[in-house]
Amino acid sequence: MEKELYLSFIPPSKANKVKINLRAYSKSGKRYIVPKDVSIKINKAIWELQNQYDASPFSNPVEVNILFVLPNKRRRDLDNIMKTLGDCLVYAGVITDDNLIYKQVLEKVVVKGKEGVIIKIKEYVEEEKFKKDLQKLQNYKEKINGI
């Protein structure tokens, strides 16, 4: 089953956090504060996803294909935006944990004056083609270790 979801805007990057008080620690050992405008956009993204997704959350490995429609050529780091988007998928109840994303394809296209995100998500099916690649990796490791 493949689900297609949309966001009407580009979510903010995880890099939009401000580091605070290094003496106080969170679980990760770092403390951050999220600016109010970033927090509002994250909550809006969660709300939009919740309004489109009415099934049980994916609890098995998934594959996501994400198309970012950007209004201009301003530099954006898709990796950092994807971190925010993964969290939004969890909080919206689309997936149970973002570590279930086994394959992700991120693509951006610039369409002047247009903005949004198209998300296609489905269960991940491991392909047999990787067995050949894994053998090549193993051969390489043996070669390097023998040097």
Rank of each mutant, 00 (worst) to 15 (best):
W47Q: 15
D98N: 09
D87Q: 15
S13Q: 11
E107T: 03
I20C: 05
A24G: 03
K136A: 07
L137G: 01
R31W: 10
I118T: 10
A15I: 10
F130T: 11
K131E: 15
L137V: 10
S28N: 14
A92C: 09
I33A: 04
Q135C: 04
N21L: 03
G116L: 01
Y91M: 07
E48P: 09
Q135N: 08
C88Q: 04
K44L: 15
D98R: 11
F130Y: 15
N99A: 06
E2V: 10
L134C: 11
C88N: 01
K30M: 12
V109A: 07
L85F: 03
E115Y: 06
S13E: 14
I33P: 00
N80V: 09
V64M: 11
R23Q: 14
V110A: 01
E142D: 12
K73D: 13
K122E: 02
L137H: 02
L7S: 08
I95G: 01
I119W: 01
G113C: 02
N51F: 06
K112P: 15
N72A: 06
N99V: 07
Y25H: 14
V111G: 04
K112C: 05
T84A: 03
I66L: 06
V110G: 00
K36E: 01
S56D: 15
Y25P: 03
S13Y: 14
G113M: 01
K44I: 08
Q135K: 15
G29N: 00
T96C: 00
V117I: 09
A92H: 07
L67Q: 13
W47E: 15
I144G: 07
F9Q: 05
N51Y: 06
L78F: 06
G113N: 02
K3A: 00
Q138R: 11
G116F: 04
G93D: 00
V105M: 14
K44M: 14
K103M: 08
Y53N: 01
G93Q: 01
E107C: 04
L78I: 04
I147F: 02
G116C: 01
D97V: 05
L67R: 13
V109F: 07
K3V: 04
G29W: 06
V110C: 02
D133R: 15
N43W: 08
T96P: 04
K141M: 11
E127R: 15
A24S: 06
